[in-house]
């Protein structure tokens, strides 16, 4: 039982990361109808920038100069500024020109953006694996281990806590502020939003900036666990099944979907082999280790099953129909 709990908890904690990436997608999709293929690369880029600033790396040369190293309280806001500038550039050079274009053109431009940003990260900060040191705690949580025999990494709890704070902050922002209301209005009916004088361009910049901040958090937390490297951008691939599960337009869906995928993946990894052996073992010789590398495909299988039964996703936005 304890082992089961441990599996579920570590699944939940991994799921938090998936939720964060999916959240970035949903925000942009809701506000601009764009499938932001670059969300994963944005996480990588933001994390690279932060590490670069923290260690005083000179852009382009990739040489660390400790004299330019910034403390975290300078580097983090500065990275956020960089992500905002990025949002402005995206609006100025991509979104603005694509108003009223077909969906496929938008999609291609986002694929292009992902590659450009990836290249930019490479050229600016170099492509070697980087370690991020924000002084986040390492190792297991002692009192959980001693008191309950549960092995939970501190950093994973910190990650989950950060994600919860971020989501709570976003929820308040969306529900209570003037800009948040405008964002929801744009998501609902962009023409009507235009008609009351909401400027779509500024809304896009805001929403891409918010997605940039979400990307930064994702990149840092993920990077703190497994180093900042190219593979970070591939977590975007995890977001797709999460979105299918949660619905492309639903923020709660992104969160819950991420958690379900996280837990499902871990459970399948741990128990999947045994279950398969228990069912088919009578007829075939099966290696119980068959499920040990579920990470890459389990989420997609789950999403496919889901597509069959609930194509609008768990919380897929109800289309209001009035008589």
């Amino acid at each position: 039982m304890l082992f089961f709990m441990e599996t579920v908890i570590s699944g939940l904690l991994a799921g938090v990361m998936y939720s964060l990436v999916a959240l970035g997608f949903v925000l942009i999709f809701k506000a601009s109808g764009v499938f932001n293929f670059a969300q994963g690369v944005m996480a990588l880029f933001a994390a690279l920038t932060l590490v670069g600033l923290l260690s005083g790396t000179t852009p382009f040369t990739h040489i660390d100069n400790p004299a330019f190293a910034m403390p975290a309280w300078v580097a983090i806001p500065l990275t956020i500024v960089v992500m905002i500038v990025f949002a402005i550039l995206v609006e100025r050079f991509i979104l603005r020109h694509l108003v009223n274009q077909e969906q496929i053109i938008l999609f291609m431009s986002m694929v292009g953006l992902a590659y450009v940003l990836e290249g930019a990260g490479d050229i600016l900060w170099g492509s070697d694996v980087k370690v991020i040191d924000l002084g986040l705690p390492q190792g297991a949580w002692d009192w959980l281990l001693d008191g309950y025999g549960l092995y939970i990494e501190k950093i994973e709890l910190v990650a989950a806590g950060t994600a919860v704070v971020l989501v709570a902050f976003l929820a308040v922002f969306f529900q209570k502020t003037r800009i948040g209301r405008a964002l929801r209005a744009v998501a609902d009916d962009h023409q009507a939003a235009l008609s009351v004088g909401i400027s779509l361009r500024s809304i896009w910049i805001i929403v891409w900036s918010v997605a940039g901040v979400v990307a930064l958090v994702t990149g840092v937390v993920w990077g703190a666990k497994s180093g900042i490297q190219f593979s970070l951008s591939l977590i975007a691939l995890k977001a797709l099944p999460v979105l299918i599960l949660g619905g492309f337009e639903s923020i709660p869906g992104a969160i819950v979907g991420g958690l379900i995928i996280g837990v499902g993946e871990k459970l399948a990894e741990v128990y999947g082999g045994e279950i398969i052996v228990a069912i088919f073992g009578r007829w075939y010789e099966i290696d119980p280790g068959i499920f040990s590398a579920t990470e890459n495909w389990f989420a997609y299988v789950l999403a496919l099953v889901f597509l069959l039964f609930r194509p609008q996703g768990l919380f897929g936005e109800k289309i209001i129909e009035r008589v």
Binding site: R178, D188, A192, A193, S195, I198, I320
Partner: peptide, 26 residues
């Protein structure tokens, strides 16, 4: 100068009051 669009175009997932408040956006 403001237009009230054909077909009403309310923000369906916002409350009536939130709808009214979006009008004060500018």
């Amino acid at each position: 100068c403001i237009q009230v669009m054909e077909g009403r175009h309310c923000f369906e997932h916002l409350t009536v009051e939130e709808n009214l408040l979006t009008g004060a956006y500018t």
